[in-house]
Design a protein around this nucleic acid. Structure first.
Length: 562
RNA sequence: CCGCCCGUAGCACAACCGGAUAGUGCAACGGCCUUCUAAGCCGUAGGUUGCAGGUUCGAAUCCUGCCGGGCGGGCCA
């Protein structure tokens, strides 16, 4: 529809150029947008205002000329000049209802595209270290990252989901020591409790399972505990697997899966870290000073140089990060998106600087980053800071237990990642009848209920048969719904391009509101009005399909009854 | 001190990367169920978009400077 209008406008422009009204101008693609206000028509263009200066005409006069140059067509009922020089298009009813047939024909595929077809993208997200349960920040990362993957898949990309973690560092040592201490019956208040030990009660469960010789299977590893309290290495291996499994269970309950788990330790074992450092040295971007090896990151936008190898001989943390991203590049991902907490934003400059220093022709802006800001959890008007199991933070599991998977996913994905988020448990839970998630799901369930009623009346009353009666749809509420349905593919395209899944959430709320409005104003199924009922059934089904498609992108269920 | 993010109605957030009268939900007030799910709908009220300049036909959006909040800045990860 949009394309058709653009084409009409281009024809008008060339006619104006031919007649000398407009000077020969460089190609401009007219910008056509959906309007916010129904009194502004269905679609509008700012073309006249953009070209006014170049044409030496007043915007409104130019708009008049453009409108008069538009060829005869069957799409537009009328075009109006408004405001400072907008051209507002009012589509005729037959053009407006076309969208229903398109939605019903495409079904679950409506809104998808082939924009990224044949191209590989990797999305790395969550990437929690196996030292404790996932917290709400990981939950936000999981909700946003997973929705990004779904959006990219829906627009044709070949997506790989990756989870990166460190299974060997000092944190893991602390973990093993903590489990060992618990296995010996010690608690955080005892004098011999390890410094920087993990104090959460999950360590007790872990220690108990280890002593009992339990077997655990995580998505990427499985192990049987030796039960030997003195074998720190065995405790470490078991603990990592146990916590990985716990994280997997939380992610599964959240509807999130991964294609690959990548271990930081593998970068040392394979020699990738050594090779990366050697390559950086050969490329001449490093130097020795004070007994340490430095990388000249300031050549690549960092505000100062960074140490790669400490005096003692160990590498600093960003070196494996660089090696890891080189590995991603060598795996052939022209696009890599890292979703992570904004508290790690300083690594962006270093990783990119390291990659530039390798002289491998990696683009400057590679990889891309989506950073999410902090989440605070409010309940009973107070900030919740502690979880029973983890001790020092609120876990993703806590949220799922409190308000359910659907509400948790929706709330965590419905806000712009760059804004801090207040998760109001009272809103998601105590006032559940006003919950935006249920509001959208309710619209979906209502439509299913309407369909059931129509079918009960007459088995031939299907949405498909309503396609022949779409001329019945003339009410303002119906038109508003149609316009929103037509917008959906652009919402998906925009959310994917900007890597902002929250646009989908906002759209769905609007769509649900438009349906509820129609439902309350008009009877959907009226036995005495078969043509009208069938048309409304088709509209309702198209709405249901789009709601279901959108919720799927957010990982939220679309129930048939509530 | 430096870097990144944010500042929009009482609260929580949108606003199609410069468009028209800045929207949505909670909270407040007033209406709508003998009828397809009232987990719904309709209406009312609520704003100098932190402040001050600048750019232009046009600014919440872009630029500069302040103010306020968050995060980060180590041979820690």
């Amino acid at each position: 529809m949009k394309e058709a209008l653009i084409s009409l406008l281009e024809q008008s422009l060339s006619a104006l150029e031919a007649s000398g009204t407009l000077p020969q101008a460089p190609e401009v693609t007219p910008q056509v947008d959906h309007t916010r206000d129904a009194s502004h028509g269905d679609l509008a263009t700012n073309l006249a205002m953009v070209l006014a200066k170049r044409a030496g005409m007043a915007p409104r006069a130019l708009a008049e000329a453009i409108v008069s140059g538009i060829p005869e067509n069957t799409l537009i009922a009328r075009a109006e000049i408004a405001g400072p020089g907008f051209i507002n298009f009012f589509l005729n009813q037959a053009s407006q209802v076309e969208i229903i047939g398109k939605v019903l024909a495409a079904g679950p595929a409506f809104g998808t595209s082939r924009a990224g077809a044949g191209r590989k993208v990797q999305v790395e997200f969550v990437s929690a270290n196996p030292t404790g349960p996932l917290h709400v920040g990981h939950g936000r990362g999981a909700a946003i990252g997973d929705s990004l993957c779904r959006l990219l898949t829906a627009t044709g990309w070949d997506v790989q989901r990756e989870f990166y973690y460190n299974d060997a560092g000092q944190q893991i040592n602390n973990l093993a020591l903590s489990v060992q201490a618990r296995a010996r019956g010690l608690g955080p208040d005892d004098e011999t409790w390890p410094t920087d030990g993990y104090r959460g009660t999950y360590i007790i469960d872990l220690a108990t399972a280890y002593v009992a010789g339990a077997t655990v299977a995580a998505a990427d590893r499985s192990i049987t505990a030796l039960g030997d309290i003195d074998n720190l290495e065995a405790i470490r291996d078991f603990s990592v697997a146990w916590l990985r499994r716990e994280q997997d269970l939380d992610l599964k309950a959240f509807g999130v899966t991964f294609d690959n788990y990548f271990l930081e330790s593998s970068l040392y074992e394979s020699g990738a870290v050594e090779r990366t450092v050697a390559t950086l040295e050969q490329a001449g971007h490093s130097y020795e000073q004070d007994g340490a090896l430095w990388l000249r990151t300031s050549d690549f936008g960092d505000d100062k140089d960074r140490v790669m190898r400490k005096k003692e001989g160990h590498y600093t943390y960003f070196v494996p990060d660089v090696a890891y991203h080189l590995d991603k590049w060598q795996r052939g991902y022209e696009r890599v998106i890292n979703e992570q907490g904004a508290d790690h934003h300083s690594t962006i400059t270093r990783v990119r600087a390291g990659l530039q220093g390798l002289d491998q022709g990696i683009p400057e802006g590679w990889p891309e980053y989506v950073l999410h800001q902090m989440v605070t959890v409010m309940r009973d008007g107070e900030e919740v800071k502690l979880s029973k199991r983890a001790g020092s933070y609120v876990t993703l599991r806590d949220l799922i237990d409190w308000v359910g998977k659907d509400a948790t996913r929706f709330f965590l994905a419905a806000r712009s990642a760059s804004s801090q988020l207040t998760f109001d448990v009272d809103l998601a839970l105590a006032q559940s009848n006003e919950n935006p998630v249920f509001y959208i799901q309710y619209a979906h369930a209502r439509i299913c209920s309407v369909k059931r009623k129509a079918q009960a009346h007459d088995a031939n009353w299907t949405p498909q048969s309503g396609l022949e009666h779409l001329d019945q749809l003339v009410e303002p509420e119906a038109i508003a719904l149609l316009l929103l349905l037509a917008k959906y593919p652009e919402v998906i395209e925009g959310a994917t391009r900007q890597l902002e899944p929250h646009g989908v959430a906002n759209y769905l709320r609007e769509l649900a509101a438009a349906f509820h409005g129609f439902y309350n104003a008009h009877k959907m199924v009226d036995e005495s009005q078969p043509d009208q009922s069938l048309a409304r059934l088709a509209l309702a089904e198209a709405t249901r399909q789009v709601i279901a498609n959108g919720l799927e992108l957010l990982g939220v269920s679309a129930p048939e009854s509530m």
